[in-house]
Simulated assay, not measured.
Amino acid sequence: MQKVTSADGTTIAYERQGSGPRLILVAGALCDRGALRPLADELAKDFDVVTYDRRGRGDSGDSTPYAVQREVDDIGALLTALGGTAAIYGHSSGAALAAVAAGAGLPFTQVVLHEPPYGPEDVDTEDEGAQVIELLAADRRREAIELFLMLAGMPKEAALETAAAPGLTDLAPTLAYDFAVMDHASPGGRVPFELLGRITQSTLVVAGTASPPFMVDAAHRIVKELPAASLSELADQDHVVPPEILAPVLRAHLLE
């Protein structure tokens, strides 16, 4: 494990493995860097791969008040530590964060957005998100996780089982960060068309055909907005794709 200091003095922990073109992996909600380690192991055969703990998670520090720009600064600090440029892959709300960072002008060579969970234009999700935040404020962490997972499309029984996983409640407070990321450029977590239009790098958008329909629909909509984008639909895959299936898709795009 290595550490870098972000612009506000917060320590960000990261791991680096492999050799080749530099690639940063950004995890989504309720995940620390360990969640993407299996994917990193697969990609390290061809890339200099970095997985990191987003602020408030794992071995990274935190500061208050939270701001999405602080997370963008964290990625900027990683880029500096890596030598100035890298490709970036983000999963779920981590993809939304990667989009914010790319739209802010960070010097990525390429961008991969894997199912950023932007909501439909005709559905207001702000009240639902507020319910999760209220549960967190009351320190009802497990209930907040359960509700969040169901809002993301997970069946209730699976959400209850997942929320009971050891250590997951430690990450629950950072759900508020992910809601802030989703709302950053488009209130209600809808597709941030203006932000996406500022991403000039070659971008791959990934979606599994078995994922919740709103995520698949979002993937199709954002490809239309990105100046230089292509779509890869993974047959019969849902929101979490096995590394042995996902890595070849990323490898083919990033090394083309």
Results as ranks from 00 to 15, higher is better:
V4M: 13
A7D: 15
T10D: 09
T11V: 13
I12S: 14
E15H: 06
E15Y: 03
R22D: 12
A27T: 12
A29R: 02
P38K: 05
A40C: 01
L43C: 04
K45M: 04
D46N: 13
D46Q: 14
V49T: 07
V50H: 13
V50D: 14
T51I: 15
R57F: 00
S63D: 13
T64Q: 13
T64H: 08
V68H: 08
Q69P: 02
Q69E: 15
E71T: 06
G76R: 04
G83L: 04
G83F: 05
G84I: 02
T85D: 12
A86R: 00
A87V: 00
I88P: 05
I88N: 00
G94K: 01
G94R: 05
A98Y: 06
A98M: 05
A99C: 06
G103T: 12
A104W: 06
L113K: 10
H114Q: 14
E115D: 10
Y118L: 08
A130D: 15
V132F: 11
V132S: 09
I133R: 14
L136W: 12
R141Y: 14
E143W: 11
F148N: 13
G153A: 06
G153S: 08
D170A: 12
A172L: 08
F179H: 12
V181Y: 11
D183G: 07
P192Q: 02
P192H: 03
R198Q: 12
L204F: 03
A207H: 04
G208E: 14
T209L: 05
A210L: 08
P212K: 09
F214S: 09
H220T: 02
A229Q: 08
A229D: 14
A229S: 15
E233H: 07
E233Y: 07
H239G: 06
H239P: 06
E244P: 00
P248I: 02
V249M: 03
V249Y: 00
L250A: 07
L255Y: 04
E256A: 11
